[in-house]
């Protein structure tokens, strides 16, 4: 046979190429790739293992029971503590140890995030024009301008009065 040599050569090249491909592939493709689909299976566990940052008001109430009780009785009960303060992980770490004090933002801009009168807000939602409400434009408002009358944890004026009376 005149071509036998050529066939052997081609055969060796093919087999060698295949072995090379499998060898290189072994190092390039992660072992868990294809475990569940066309992706790295272990990534699911990695995504799950990310630490939780926000604890929700239930975790706050484990230590701040009095504030939580007062907060739960008012119209701000639906607002998470962490919305106005900061994420729990800033205050308490994963092992339950104290990290730093929660920030307290007294600026009227924080209140106005929700209560600034805007046409795009649902009409039934309580909104104010600062000019009408306090006689001042927004930039003129001092820190604590809203908190002078409203307790941010329980903003209804009547309730605040009752609370102060109870406290003597």
């Amino acid at each position: 046979m005149k071509h036998t040599k050529h066939y052997w050569r081609a055969g060796f090249l093919l087999v060698g190429g295949l072995i090379g491909f499998i060898f290189v592939r072994h190092f390039l493709v992660p072992t868990s790739f294809g475990q569940f689909g066309f992706y790295r299976g272990t990534n699911l566990a990695e995504q799950q293992a990310k630490s939780v940052v926000h604890g929700g008001k239930e975790s706050c109430s484990t230590c701040h029971e009095d504030v939580a009780k007062n907060h739960a009785a008012g119209s701000h009960a639906v607002v998470q503590c962490e919305n106005c303060h900061a994420a729990l992980s800033k205050h308490i770490n994963k092992d339950g140890e104290f990290v730093e004090l929660m920030p307290i933002d007294r600026s009227p801009q924080l209140c106005l995030r929700c209560h600034r009168s805007l046409p795009s807000r649902p009409t039934g939602f309580p909104q104010i024009e600062t000019k009408e409400h306090l006689g001042l434009d927004e930039p003129e408002l001092q820190a604590g301008a809203c908190l002078a009358c409203h307790n941010s944890h329980r903003p209804s004026l009547e309730k605040k009065k009752v609370k102060y009376e109870n406290n003597g």
Binding site: Q47, Q48, A49, K50, S51, V52, V53, H54, G56, V78, V79, Q80, E82, N83, C114, F125
Partner: peptide, 23 residues
């Protein structure tokens, strides 16, 4: 967005859902 995969697999709600005051 991952719908907070690390939270929902622990039985929590995504952070945005938890933070929403109006539902």
């Amino acid at each position: 967005c991952t719908w907070c995969y690390h939270r929902i697999t622990k039985g929590l709600k995504p952070a945005c859902v938890q933070a929403c005051p109006t539902g």
